[in-house]
Design a protein around this nucleic acid. Structure first.
Length: 838
RNA sequence: GGGCGCUUAGCUCAGUUGGUUAGAGCACCGGCCUUACAAGCCGGGGGUCGGGGGUUCGAGUCCCUCAGCGCCCACCA
């Protein structure tokens, strides 16, 4: 094929041109005839749709894309779907504000409902199905914008495989998996104390917690020991005094052993409480004696459970003091009833100070307090009925799965192990929210109108997905909803992780496409960020272990974060926010990808526009070097032999590079593959191209020219393919000048294709470039042009290197414009240069 | 409290099993219109490889220790 090389190659417009072409040609389309062993399947992270994509997405998704492109060129059929995570709280909050609505799950579906154009002043109550429809509609627009950005970035996703986490397939999959677990006893419901967010009014799982350092104070309260003497404790939660159910000290604590088994009396309320022993009580903390309340913190829950203490709850789900424990009616408790927690604490301290039961002044401290990671107020612990998936009983199997998984980088496995080792409760999957996957369950309503939670009615698997708030369980009729003798739908939804833990099953069609599933599951790789190892990665392993008794994928590729130390400075000085689309427009997608791909696996990387400039320069260099090679040698005879030592040496180095890049990619180290390829390429341009230029123009006769031409085209072909995973647009552009088809479907280069076999003196290029460098240096120091003539150059070198240099002497002379080249044996490289006059 | 990672030139980072005077890019300085590229090319200066100790013929690389930064985990009265 005769190359068609533009006069002025440019990067402008390549994204649009090739994006459209790849779509038309189905370049990245998954071939459903491939069998599992021919497939490379990627469990792409579905980005949260509420909000916008930021440079962190560009960063990590590029990493995955380079891997996908590598395996595609290696001949694998790449299954690379995209998902949108539109399920969950962020979308709910947006819809509430955007439309001025709120979800009331007790309302029936209104098929005629249309959203108000402007948010109503008073929030309109709508049914859950109507609310969900609004959520879905609002996310579609964002999803379009996300797809456009990712296409512009050049992700080689198969956009026909897109799913959403609230979509029908995700719901079907989530519900089917839940029913599986239910049948096998791996899912269960329990009425138990759980961490509760009083603002979101929902239970929260261990994985969603974070500790925040908060100011607090130790308050010393004076209880009465069994003899009526003082017995002091320190507490940060004096407002929970009315919920005190015991006092506890360490079993070995000699100060308190005489009281174990006896009864103390609380201040203010004068309630009797047992004095008990438990090893979790720390003799060095406070007075060594603690009060146990239901519930002030998770230690209270442990004590309550293990010491079989009664429940005396006072905090309601709205975060106020609501329930009055028996025996406290009419007393000082009335002073705090109805108050929020902070106000209740203030009032309690006043009351205790008045009664003389507060000893000294509160001692301010800073201590870690548990928060929901998206929440603003400390979590409380309330008792409620929730659904759980068992994890504690399977800790050892799950640890073993973690060891079976191949981690990139390997040390990331430690995060998984420490998380699993630290699990202290089963996985709480129910949420008292609306925009999520409903539980496919109903409960019988007893004749007295109460709900019989112990006998849930499961949906028919063939009918999934169901919405129990509108669908009717098998054997019932619509009019029996919420009626005595009828049924009631489960009001909760699954936590978003309960759905996203099934992304492999959703993407591969486990619930509804057995053919696809057989070709793609278990998947090959899960790319994701390190902070969600404990949530997304862990929960995905749990689901696959239970559902399929295997890992969901063989490899986990963990990406770091984008650090932005200069963010302030940038926004101050320039006043414009750096958005991904702006960067892509300014530097070009290939350049931004270059920056992203230079971030090593798992390593946090600084946001660096300088690297994008370098990437742009590299892309332009690819255009220009390719232009030179193809316009000189594009019509080279493919059967010509590479006979010149310099050419052979260059190809030998390229063969080494191919081997190194290949094994780096196989180990998920795209960054190393890029770095090595780039280094080679610059040397190829700066040294080899300069050395070979004259010969390629025919200065040394047709055979020497043919060798150069052949070497140039072989090298260009391999280099373009090595760069293709990183710079998909510019490599495709150049490829199209002289090759049929897409470079992204071309075979990954192999060292063998470069005609290896004959022994090659690899020193030739090395020595020739070194001498050329000396000549350049001399001209630079003489303030001469590189074109300046050298009358005579005397090169001293070791005999071995001199022999190598001799093989490239003609090229060196020509590149350096050296009239007379003298070679002498010496200890190390030394070059004496006499420039011509003038 | 336990664990992991990082600390190499002004900046961003490479340095794979320990081996010749420690590398790249950016920035800086100087030079050059050289027929692929002036949004380019050529050259140059610049580092006691966080501190200390050890193993070794030899340590940026291995061991110990200390410090700083970041992250993960932890029952937080």
């Amino acid at each position: 094929m005769t190359p068609t090389v533009p006069d002025k190659p440019s990067l402008e417009g390549l994204e649009a041109k090739w994006g459209a072409r790849w779509e038309t040609d189905g370049t990245y389309r998954f071939d459903r005839t491939a069998t599992r062993d021919q497939v490379f399947a990627v469990d792409t992270p579905p980005p949260t749709v509420s909000g916008s994509l930021h440079v962190g997405h560009v960063f990590s998704y590029t990493h995955t894309d380079t891997i996908a492109r590598f395996w595609r060129m290696r001949g694998r059929d790449v299954f690379y779907p995209m998902g949108w995570d539109d399920n969950g709280l962020p979308t709910e909050r947006r819809v509430q504000n955007y439309f001025g609505v709120r979800c009331d799950p007790s309302l029936p579906y209104d098929p005629d409902f249309t959203a108000p154009r402007e948010p109503a002043k008073r929030a309109i109550s709508i049914s859950r199905p109507n609310f969900v429809a609004l959520c879905t509609g609002l996310t579609i627009e964002d999803e379009k914008a996300f797809e456009e950005l990712f296409r512009h970035l050049g992700l080689s996703v198969d956009w026909t495989q897109t799913y959403t986490t609230i979509g029908e397939r995700a719901q079907r999959t989530s519900q089917k998996a839940f029913l599986h677990h239910l049948r096998e006893g791996l899912a269960y419901q329990a009425e138990a104390p759980t961490l509760w967010d009083v603002d979101f009014q929902t239970a929260v799982a261990q994985a969603e917690l974070e500790d925040r350092e908060r100011p607090g104070a130790y308050h010393r309260l004076r209880f009465r020991d069994p003899d009526g003497g003082p017995l002091d404790i320190d507490t940060t939660r004096p407002e929970l005094l009315a919920a005190c159910v015991a006092m506890v000290a360490h079993p070995d604590d000699v100060r308190f052993q005489k009281w174990f088994g006896q009864t103390a009396t609380t201040p203010l309320f004068n309630q009797p409480v047992p004095i008990v022993a438990h090893p979790l009580a720390d003799p060095d903390k406070g007075t060594g004696m603690a009060m146990v309340c239901t519930f002030g913190d998770v230690t209270d829950v442990v004590w309550w459970r293990e010491l079989h203490l009664p429940v005396r709850a006072i905090i309601g789900r709205d975060g106020r003091i609501t329930s009055t424990p028996p025996g406290l009616e009419g007393g000082p408790f009335e002073e705090i009833r109805g108050l929020k927690i902070n106000a209740a604490q203030t009032r309690m301290v006043e009351l205790l100070r008045e009664s003389g039961d507060l000893i000294g002044e509160p001692q301010p401290i800073t201590h870690p307090v548990k928060f929901y990671e998206r929440g603003d107020r400390p979590l409380e612990i309330v008792t409620s009925r929730q659904w759980f998936i068992r994890t504690l009983d399977h800790r050892h199997e799950l640890l073993e799965r973690g060891r079976e998984l191949r981690w990139h980088p390997p040390y990331m496995q430690g995060r998984y192990q420490s998380w699993v080792n630290g699990l202290n409760s089963d996985w709480l999957i129910s949420r008292q929210r609306f925009f999520g996957v409903p539980f496919p369950l109903w409960y019988p309503v007893r004749p007295d109108g109460t709900i019989d939670h112990q006998h849930p009615i499961a949906a028919d698997e063939a009918r999934l997905p169901v919405d129990p708030s509108t669908d009717v369980p098998p054997g019932y009729t619509t009019d029996q909803r919420d009626q005595p003798g009828g049924f009631a739908g489960d009001p909760d939804v699954m936590d978003t992780w309960a759905t996203s833990s099934l992304t492999p099953q959703i993407a591969t069609g486990w619930a509804d496409d057995p053919d696809l599933f057989a070709r793609t599951f278990p998947m090959d790789v899960r790319p994701q960020a390190h902070e969600i190892i404990r949530t997304w990665l862990f929960s995905t392993v749990v689901r696959a272990h239970y559902l399929h008794n295997c890992l969901p994928w063989a490899d986990a590729a963990i990406s770091g974060w984008v650090l932005d130390p200069d963010r302030k400075k940038m926004s101050k000085s320039k006043g414009n926010v750096v958005t991904p689309i702006g960067l892509l427009g300014q530097y070009g997608s290939d350049a931004v990808r270059y920056w992203a791909a230079s971030g090593r696996p798992g390593v946090d990387t600084t946001f660096d526009e300088g690297q994008m400039k370098v990437g742009r320069r590299l892309s332009i260099k690819v255009l220009n070097a390719s232009k030179f090679v193809l316009s000189r040698a594009g019509e080279a005879d493919p059967s010509a032999a590479v006979t010149v030592a310099l050419d052979q040496a260059m190809l030998a180095g390229l063969a080494d590079l191919i081997d190194e890049a290949t094994s780096a990619f196989e180990g998920y180290d795209y960054a190393r593959a890029l770095e090595r390829t780039e280094t080679f390429f610059w040397r190829f341009c700066d040294d080899y191209l300069e050395l070979v230029k004259g010969r390629a123009y025919g200065s040394q006769g047709p055979e020497a020219q043919a060798s150069a031409d052949r070497a140039l085209t072989l090298a260009l072909s391999a280099i373009l393919r090595l760069f293709a995973p990183f710079l998909p647009f510019v490599t495709e552009e150049v490829w199209s000048w002289w090759q049929e088809g897409s470079v992204h479907r071309a075979p990954w280069p192999a060292a063998a294709e470069l005609g290896a076999g004959t022994p090659v003196d690899r020193l030739v290029l090395d020595v020739a470039a070194a001498v050329l460098g000396e000549v350049r240096k001399a001209k630079s120091e003489a303030h001469q042009s590189m074109r300046a003539e050298v009358r005579r150059a005397v090169v001293s070198e070791t005999p071995e290197r001199l022999a190598a240099l001799r093989l490239a002497a003609a090229d060196v002379q020509e590149a350096g414009r050296i009239a007379e080249l003298v070679l002498e044996e010496g200890a190390a490289l030394a070059v004496k240069i006499e420039l011509a006059e003038g």
